[in-house]
């Protein structure tokens, strides 16, 4: 048992937490971008685009995320000769993974908006994409938001898998501490509390956004 104060763990844990937050945000932003493109492909009338988007979704959702992280980290350099730092490879893998789930969230959000909204926009003289931007997206966003927060919580926790390829995010930071001093339970409890705080903060931001709009 260590005689160290738990306060001494905080700097390293916060460093890990910072990386966790950064990776989560990049993955969410990148995943949302991929999700928008995939969602547009899914609702397009082209069978080819639909097929591509669905194949992507099937592959990404069918394989364990851990396998995907290892594939991007080990297999991609072997195939292309480009070696990426672990944090880059890991973030890329999580981004690609998140994108497949965001695509479904975005697709169902767009399709939840009544067809009449598109017709009303078009009948005024707006083009398809203009109507999407001015009428459909602003309404779909509020349908998507709770699911996006849910996805945020999943992605946040998924980043812990990056510890496997040596990225010192929050979970790995904790592991580094307790493998040295064996204060395992206390360190893991602190790690857990930090994950929870990040999630609760994101959830409050979303709730605040929603309140502001419905006010």
């Amino acid at each position: 048992m260590s005689d160290q104060s738990w306060l001494d763990y905080i700097p390293l844990l916060l460093e890990g937490a910072a990386l966790t937050i950064i990776v989560t945000f990049i993955s969410m932003i990148g995943g949302t971008s991929i999700g928008i493109i995939l969602a547009i492909m899914k609702i397009s009338s082209s069978k080819l685009l639909q097929g591509c988007a669905n194949t992507y979704g099937g592959l990404v959702r069918g394989l364990p995320l851990l396998v995907q992280i290892l594939l991007v980290y080990f297999a991609l350099p072997a195939l292309t000769g480009v070696r990426m730092p672990a944090v880059v490879a890991g973030t890329a893998a999580i981004t690609l993974f998140t994108g497949a789930f965001m695509a479904e969230i975005i697709r169902s959000g767009i399709q939840s908006v009544d067809r009449g909204q598109m017709e009303a926009g078009r009948s005024i003289g707006f083009g398809h994409w203009q109507t999407m931007r001015l009428v459909i997206w602003p309404q779909a966003f509020w349908v998507m938001l709770p699911n996006m927060v849910n996805q945020f919580s999943i992605t946040l926790k998924d980043t812990s898998l990056l510890s496997v390829i040596g990225v010192v995010e929050l979970t790995m930071a904790g592991e580094r501490i307790y493998t040295m001093n064996f204060d395992t339970i206390r360190v893991l409890a602190m790690v857990g509390v930090i994950y929870l705080i990040i999630y609760l903060f994101a959830e409050r931001v979303a709730a605040w956004l929603e309140r502001r709009v419905s006010a």
Binding site: D114, G116, Q117, A120, R122, S123, G125, F126, P138
Partner: peptide, 20 residues
Amino acid sequence: INKVRQRIGMVFQQFNLFNH
């Protein structure tokens, strides 16, 4: 067609006001 639609107003059975 977008130009032509600007010249013709349309009123729907279900109103279709922009809800937001």
